[in-house]
Design a protein around this nucleic acid. Structure first.
Length: 221
DNA sequence: GCGACAG
DNA sequence: ATCTTGTCGC
């Protein structure tokens, strides 16, 4: 249902991968997303025992009721290299997205978008390949400088690369670690911030992973 | 040369 | 991201 309008090899040496990112950056479209967003998709990938598993959950907006969920597995075929995360996760993500029966108006990723050394983080890259609106929502900083935002939910500060604003550090929940928001493709930073806050469940407090796994196992997840 | 470094 | 026990801090 959701397939790339263009494609390329993912088996690239860092040097070529970097060149591709720079080239694709020139195709980024910076524009407001659709005014009416009814379906939002959250995308993430787990790396377990040599297997990459991408999960996509489509939810209604603004109720955030689950509409659909799909997964895709694939052998891990690329190492983690700061700045090249896309080459490690994208192949599996694209496979999962093709299994979607519904067409989300927006895709949100656990990673950077424009806030990337070459302005081509995971969210932007996949957005360009799909030519679909995307937002990058990372748990930590890849590049750029910023001041800690006020502790209240909704507060944020800009993330800079020199004089350019490349993203924002957003407080989705009062007193909790902020997230790093940046525009993906066919998106603006302001819209991205607004959308992330609209998906108001917020950031989850860290909890012992072994307990989470245990709970997941009992639920059959 | 020494750090920093999405997940 | 994942592995993995005890331990430090509020």
């Amino acid at each position: 249902m959701l397939k790339p309008v263009r494609n390329h090899s993912w088996d690239l040496e860092p040097r070529d991968a970097i060149a591709l990112q720079t080239e694709l950056a020139g195709q980024l479209v910076f524009a407001p997303p659709p005014a009416e967003i009814e379906l939002v998709a959250g995308v993430d990938v787990s790396m377990r025992r040599g297997v990459a598993r991408a999960a996509v959950v489509v939810m209604t907006m603004p109720e955030l009721h689950e509409q659909e969920r799909v997964c895709a597995d694939a052998p891990i075929a690329y190492p983690y290299v700061p700045g090249l995360l896309t080459f490690r996760e994208a192949p599996t993500i694209l496979q999962a997205l093709e299994r979607l029966e519904h067409l989300p108006d927006l895709l949100m990723f656990d990673g950077q978008g424009y806030a990337h050394p070459r302005r081509m983080g995971l969210a932007s890259h996949i957005g360009v390949l799909l030519d679909h609106p995307t937002v990058g929502c990372a748990k930590s900083r890849l590049c750029g400088t910023y001041k800690e935002p006020p502790r209240e939910r909704g507060a944020y500060t800009h993330l800079y690369d020199g004089d350019e604003v490349i993203g924002a550090v957003v407080r989705t929940r009062t007193g909790v670690k902020p997230v790093f928001v940046s525009a993906g493709h066919r998106m603006t930073l302001d819209a991205a911030i607004e959308l992330v806050l609209a998906c108001g469940k917020g950031y989850r407090l860290p909890e012992p992973t072994r307990w989470a796994h245990r709970a997941a196992a009992q639920t059959g997840a």
